[in-house]
Simulated assay, not measured.
Amino acid sequence: MLPTHGRYDYHPLPDRPRYAWPGGARLAVYIGLNLEHFAFGEGLGAELAPGGPQPDILNYAWRDYGNRVGAWRLIQLLDALALPATVLLNSAMYDYAPALIAAHRDRGDEIAGHGRTNSERQSALPEAEERRLIAESTAAIARHEGAPPRGWLSPWIAESHATPDLLAEAGYRYSLNWCADDQPIWKRTAHGPLLAVPYPQEVNDIPSIAVRRDGAAQFADIIIDDFEERLTQTEDGLPQVMGIALHPYLVGQPYRLRQLRRALAHVAARREHVWITTAGAIFAHVAALPPGIVPGR
């Protein structure tokens, strides 16, 4: 027998129960907007070009463009199209760019936990230190937003063997770490069920643009094609979740933003046929369904 995580069982897609999202929709769409802050001269970070010795000015400044400029342009775009967002927040952003978080708060966007900074991986920490990372990030969000977050995305999608247990222990109700399905599924933890809400690794600007080197128009086409294919697939009654993962230092660049506007306008134009929502609202809907509808519970 191969080693296994033991968090969920195998459930064939065609055999699953049918259910609907609010308004009878079969496709739920949410935007996961990553707001991240990085240590200067040390730690991890995506790279525009291979970095040299620290301090790596080129890549640090490129990422900082997202918080200073790109994120504000994205807010304008979301406002113009009346689209909500789930903000995946490094808690270090409260000290670095509080006005940006306030702007999302004013929009009514959901704030989800995304660690302290993307300059660290929680999977590399001893369990006590990982518990502390989760606690510090959670406390910062609760202090500023008036309530703790319900959802979590690990920096770099990094998990230790204990991460789901630690998240449930800390009061989290859903995680975006596992990209194993097109539907939410319940995961087992030592502290009760934790919902895995699908988070994209394909319709995601980092793997697309920073890794595969897709062009701006190609990434926009990926969003549109994924959306249209899912609309076709859900005609069989099986609901799906489509996430769109964005990072302001990538898609906030003007030429990419122009193409992103085309893609998001295409999605927004079909809002009568889909549920455009947040990851937290997806969790709340699933949690209210009768037991046995969603795999794992």
Rank of each mutant, 00 (worst) to 15 (best):
V251G: 06
Y174P: 00
R258S: 15
P200T: 01
A217S: 13
T277V: 08
R150S: 10
L74V: 04
Q201G: 13
A287R: 03
H114G: 15
D221T: 15
A135E: 14
V203S: 01
E202F: 12
D165Y: 05
A28M: 04
G6E: 03
M1K: 12
G6Y: 01
P207E: 10
I224E: 11
T234F: 00
V241H: 05
L176F: 01
I57P: 09
D221R: 15
I206H: 00
L289H: 09
Y19H: 13
L35E: 06
H161S: 07
L260H: 02
G24C: 11
Y199F: 13
V274S: 02
T277C: 11
H11T: 10
A102T: 11
N204T: 15
P184E: 07
G51C: 08
A265I: 06
A82V: 09
L2Y: 11
M93P: 12
P193T: 13
N34D: 12
L58I: 12
R230W: 10
H11I: 11
I223P: 00
I141N: 04
H273G: 10
A112D: 06
V267A: 08
D214F: 13
H161R: 05
W275Y: 01
A97E: 10
S123D: 13
I224K: 15
A281L: 08
W275P: 03
G66W: 00
E169W: 09
L33F: 04
D236A: 11
V69A: 04
L166K: 04
Y30D: 10
W152M: 07
P22R: 11
P98R: 09
P254G: 02
